[in-house]
């Protein structure tokens, strides 16, 4: 439910850093709270976001939810598969359900995010 190699934001996004490329998606907990995802809106390649900016929207049958950039960066790729198959966000939130790849300036912002154990504790606290 909380892969060890990811970092997590308080808005329930995950980040996987590979060099200066950060892959971003929403967590298992977030997709479970939303329910069946039926629509995803993603940014354009080249768009830049500051940490905390909304970069996209995920809609389930009942709810509309903004998705926030956990770190600052420039979009180098979006997961176009989600436009046709938004259910991937539910089925594989940490894999095929990824949303964007950001080119980030450094590791410092990523370091400030929660690790798996901290995120698990954060969810328990929220409930």
């Amino acid at each position: 439910m909380y892969p060890e190699d990811l970092k997590y934001s308080k808005d329930h996004e995950w980040v996987k850093l590979d060099g200066n490329i950060a892959t971003v998606g929403i967590t298992h907990y977030a997709q479970d709270q939303l329910g069946d995802v039926v629509f995803v809106e993603l940014p354009m390649e080249g768009d830049s976001f500051e940490a905390g900016n909304g970069f996209g929207v995920v809609e389930s049958v009942k709810a509309v939810s903004d998705v926030y950039a956990p770190v600052s960066g420039t979009v180098i790729e979006v997961n176009e598969k989600l436009l046709e198959s938004p259910e991937l966000v539910n089925e594989d939130p940490y894999g095929d359900g990824w949303m964007i790849k950001l080119e980030v300036a450094g590791e410092s912002e990523v370091d400030r995010l929660m690790d798996a154990r901290e995120y698990e504790a954060f969810i328990e606290e929220e409930n």
Partner: peptide, 9 residues
């Protein structure tokens, strides 16, 4: 109850 297994199903 808003859902048991999922609204679509």
């Amino acid at each position: 109850p808003v859902q048991y297994v999922g609204i679509l199903e």
